[in-house]
């Protein structure tokens, strides 16, 4: 304590205090304004990453998104979308897009992990945006019951209660979520790809998102206790099954039953 009180009278103390005050208000301001950012950027990108990313961008993305990612008629500006958006879009194969359509489709990934990271680094360097989530948020070790409740209120209307996917207007759709990594699910929530709304941290807290991922991973790993889930599509697939398989087998039996024995 004595040491501290001595330093308090140091000529530079006022400057340090001023800096601390500025940092604090700035930090609070940053937290208040960039709620989309789940965490401070935990992935540190090197200058080399950004440089390599820029090269990749010019070669693969700039045709639609424009030089400097400022957007063009065929692709939106990527300034401020953040590393999370790049990691999601490129990491799930949606970007580069195969063709213009109602929405970008998931397809085999075009870039390896390093290249994706470099692209993300480049886009993140253009403007502040959501970053790739910390591994602790996507580990699937949260509260599945809470996640289930949040999922039903915020997600099930498009993605279906068992995450089997669903239709949107005019050819768009909400995809099934089985087989999607926790990181990509998290990134989709914070960035709102395509027509999906954005779920910022004020809407669903990082822990809530972790719970949702936990719920999805739990039901995916457990499967259905009743046996084959018939696509988890609900009464339509059940009806189709009973008409085709159920009645089909029974008709086969009736034909056997009423045929003459040889």
């Amino acid at each position: 304590m004595k040491a501290l009180s001595q330093k308090r009278r140091h000529p530079l103390a006022a400057l340090v205090l001023l800096l601390m005050g500025l940092m604090l208000t700035g930090g609070v301001y940053a937290v208040a304004t960039t709620l989309n950012q789940a965490k401070a950027d935990t992935t540190t990108y090197s200058a080399n990453d950004i440089k390599e990313g820029n090269k990749l961008f010019i070669a693969n993305c700039a045709t639609c998104h424009g030089m400097g990612a400022s957007g063009s008629a065929s692709g939106p500006s990527l300034v401020g979308v953040g590393a999370a958006a790049v990691d999601f879009q490129v990491g799930t194969g949606r970007m580069p897009m195969q063709m213009q359509g109602p929405q970008a489709q998931r397809k085999p990934v075009q870039f390896d992990a390093t290249q994706t990271k470099q692209l993300a680094a480049y886009v993140a360097s253009l403007g502040a945006g959501p970053s790739v989530p910390d591994a602790s948020l996507v580990d699937g070790k949260g509260n599945a019951a809470n996640g289930g409740e949040l999922f039903r209120v915020n997600c099930a209307m498009c993605h279906n209660a068992a995450a089997a996917g669903g239709a949107l207007t005019r050819g768009k759709f909400a995809p099934a979520l089985a087989g999607v990594s926790g990181q990509h699910i998290y990134e989709a929530m914070v960035t709102g790809p395509q027509n999906m709304p954005v779920f910022n941290d004020a809407n669903i807290t990082p822990n809530g998102k972790r719970d949702i991922i936990t719920f999805l991973k739990t039901i995916e790993a457990d499967g259905s206790p009743g046996g084959n889930d018939l696509g988890a599509l609900g009464p339509v697939s059940e009806g189709l099954f009973v008409w085709i398989a159920g009645l089909g087998v029974i008709i086969a039996f009736t034909i056997w039953l009423t045929s003459r024995s040889s």
């Binding site: 304004t33 709620l35 989309n36 709102g192 709304p197 954005v198 779920f199 910022n200 004020a202 809407n203």
Partner: peptide, 14 residues
């Protein structure tokens, strides 16, 4: 409760 500043563009709150 929800602050106006929480609701960023593109968000949907239930």
């Amino acid at each position: 409760p929800i602050k106006a500043s929480d609701v960023t563009i593109g968000s949907a709150f239930h």
